[in-house]
């Protein structure tokens, strides 16, 4: 499974989101490849990904993609990431 963490620039918030998503996936015992991406390349990368994680503002920018787009409000709230990922994977 491929998951993309998206931010505006690809060096900051997406990297933090990727780290915390990997932490959550390890706890859940889910094997997935998480990549950080900036908004410019995210649409292309989303083509072969199952899930896109991002913030609310950027979710609107990403628009229509096949992957499920999940909005994370607090990038450091592992419970929020766990809950939203779990329900997306059901």
């Amino acid at each position: 499974m491929k998951i993309i963490a998206v931010c505006g620039m690809g060096i900051g918030t997406s990297v933090l989101l990727k780290m915390n998503t990997e932490k959550v996936l390890r706890t859940l015992g889910i094997d997935a490849d998480v990549e950080a991406a900036d908004i410019g390349v995210a649409r292309g990368m989303a083509r072969d990904a199952e899930i896109v994680l991002t913030s609310e503002e950027l979710a609107e920018e990403i628009g229509d993609v096949e992957a499920q787009v999940i909005v994370i409000d607090n990038f450091f709230d592992l419970d929020e990431i766990t809950e939203k990922l779990t329900s997306a994977l059901e």
Partner: peptide
Amino acid sequence: AAVDKLGPYIVIAPGLAIAHSRP
């Protein structure tokens, strides 16, 4: 300019903003 263009997405947790741009 990044916030002007993309909105306040850099506020990634309550009370915390990570101000940054690209390389």
